[in-house]
Every structure is written in C-alpha cells, then in structure tokens.
C-alpha cells in the first residue's frame, strides 16, 4: 500500500489544466518561394478553452476542442509579375531610314518580387487541438546538481524533480474556420497592390499595360493561384505550403510530453521549510499515477 495518496477530482484537474494551458504561448514563422509569388508568416500562438476528461481503461486524459488562437498573424505576400515593356516604338519615322522620334521605352515589373504586402490576419483563423494523453511519470536528474548535496541543491534551486507530463497518444489539429472577412481583406489588398504597381505611371502606360496583361487584379489572383475559395487557398498556403498547422501540433505535443510538466515535485521534498535550521528533506520514491473516470491519483512512498 502506498504511503502517500494524493487525488485531484476531475474538476480540480480541469482547473489545474486550465492554469497550465494559460502559460502556453509561442511564436512561429516560416517562408517559402512558390515561383511567381513568395509568402511568409509570423504568428503568435496561444491556447484557450477546451474540455478535459479523465478516462479509465485505458488510463488517459482526453482533451477536446482546445482552441488554438493565432494572434497576431501577419502574412507577407511577394508577387513577381511578368516583365512588361511598353513604348520604344517609332512615332516619326525618318524617310531616309531610321526613326526621328521614338516613344520612350518603359519596362515594368523587372524586380522579384515586384511588390510585397503584409496582411494582418490576427484572430481570423480558428483551429482546434484534440488529443488523448498518458500521464507520464518521469524523473528529472538536474544536470546542474552534479556535485551538490541534497541541501546544497535545495538552497541553490538545482534539485531533481519528479515530473508528471501529458504524453500524447494521439493529437489532431483541425482548421475550423477562416473568417469571412479574410476574402474582403484579400480583395482590398489586391486593389491596393494594383494601385501601388501602376500608381504614378503616365495614363498611356497604364492603358498599355492593361492591354497587354489584362485586368491587373485578375492577374494577381492568377499569380497567387487564388481561386474563388479563399478559405481553401489560405488553408493550403498556411497549412500545406508553409506548414503552420503541423508546426503547431508538433510544438504542442513536444511541450506537453517533453518540456513542461503539469505537476512537478521536488525530490527530496522539503517537508519542513528552512528557517533558522536547515529544511527537512524527504526522499520521494515509487511515484505512480492512476486515472479513473472521476479523479487522478498520485501515489508515492517515503524513502
């Protein structure tokens, strides 16, 4: 029989998990070149909401619909428009050969990208994480503790720890919704790009470019491969091409399983804290967990 049994009800575990979840935030960025256009994102990510259930047989913690809040999210698009040269043709030919007066030759869109813009998509993408987790017990041998006695390590805050971590059995991230406003934002951005690209050029040049390239907005949409389904386009760009959602899922799984424990217990544990005398440190051994449908039980012995 274990010498110590500590139990947290499902409600208590939820409250503890909520506090743990609220400490999680991280950032991500990536960039890619896709021929006629390039894209890069920079995102700040945090977790909210979600429901937590303790399940028996198998013992696991099930987390459902944990909101992944991607805010801020800035998406930078760089567009390479095919070079266009207008003018340069002769308007007053020389009857003896050659040309007396030529229109100036103007070549446009020779840079790569010709123009780039950053779109603020913070809070406009809803995604969720769901998963089932083992409550993994591990022992952290603090590498900074080497050569120290138990009491020296305690005073130097370099103690070993028993750690309880959520080790994913499976973890899914789903893109739930992209706000309808994203389509309008992209339309507005494309309009602005057109103005930016052609602004300041003489009227005849604009006319010539439009004659050569057709509608600029349609051209940009074509370059971006932006079809009518904006949600699918953005989902593919961020999710598949730039790997944002895979990154989030991998990061969260790694954070739960390897980085930050849900609970940690200093070992040896200071059962009486230091005052004028040294703390009384108690070795903890045989730490184990049991999950039922209603509670998490942590058992241990005194060494």
């Amino acid at each position: 029989m274990p010498q110590i049994n500590l139990a947290a009800s499902e409600n208590a575990f939820r409250a503890i998990f909520d506090a743990y979840r609220d400490t999680i935030n991280f950032s991500a960025s990536n960039a890619g070149d896709f021929g006629p256009f390039s894209a890069a994102y920079s995102a700040g990510i945090r977790l909210e909401g979600g429901t937590v259930d303790l399940e028996n047989s198998p013992d696991q913690v099930k987390i459902s619909e944990l909101d992944v809040v991607i805010d801020p999210l800035s998406l930078t698009l760089g567009i390479d428009i095919p070079s266009v040269c207008v003018g340069g043709f002769c308007i007053v030919p020389n009857p003896f050969g050659g040309c007396l007066v030529r229109l100036p030759r103007i070549c446009l869109f020779e840079a790569d990208p010709d123009i780039s813009t950053t779109i603020d998509l913070g809070g406009l993408i809803e995604s969720e994480i769901s998963g089932a987790f083992d409550m993994k017990v591990s022992y952290f041998n603090n590498p900074d503790r080497a050569g120290l006695t138990d009491h020296q390590a305690h005073f130097a805050a370099k103690t070993n720890e028993w750690q309880l971590k959520l080790d994913p059995r499976w973890l899914d991230i789903d893109l739930i919704d992209i706000s309808d406003t994203v389509g309008n934002i992209l339309d507005s951005v494309i309009d602005n790009l057109v103005d930016g690209l052609l602004g300041g050029l003489p009227g005849w040049v604009k006319d010539a470019v439009r004659w050569i390239l057709g509608g600029m907005a349609d051209l940009i949409r074509g370059i971006l491969d932006l079809a009518d389904d904006v949600d699918e386009w953005l989902s593919n760009l961020l999710g598949t091409s730039l790997g944002l959602f895979d990154f989030i899922a991998t990061w969260v799984a790694d954070y739960f399983a390897n980085r930050e424990p849900v609970f940690s217990i200093e070992d040896p544990y200071p059962v009486i804290k230091a005052g004028s005398l040294i703390p009384v440190l108690i070795p903890i051994k045989n730490l184990s967990t049991d999950i039922t449908d209603v509670e998490l039980v942590v058992s241990a012995d005194i060494g």
Binding site: Q3, L6, A7, A8, N11, A12, V280, L281, E295
Partner: peptide
C-alpha cells in the same frame, strides 16, 4: 468510493510514511 467524492483535492498519509518522516526530522533536526 473515490478519494475525491466529497472534496476537490485529497491527501492520505499512512502511518508508515509518517514514521519515516519523523525519522528524517530526527536525523536532520
């Protein structure tokens, strides 16, 4: 019956563990 039927957090400490703790206190203080 679950440990937490009537509470949120439960702690149960067996006398064997308690007596070991007393020995540690005796040893360290």
């Amino acid at each position: 019956m679950a440990y937490t039927d009537n509470c949120d957090i439960f702690g149960g400490f067996h006398e064997n563990g308690f007596n070991t703790i007393i020995q540690h206190i005796q040893h360290q203080r």
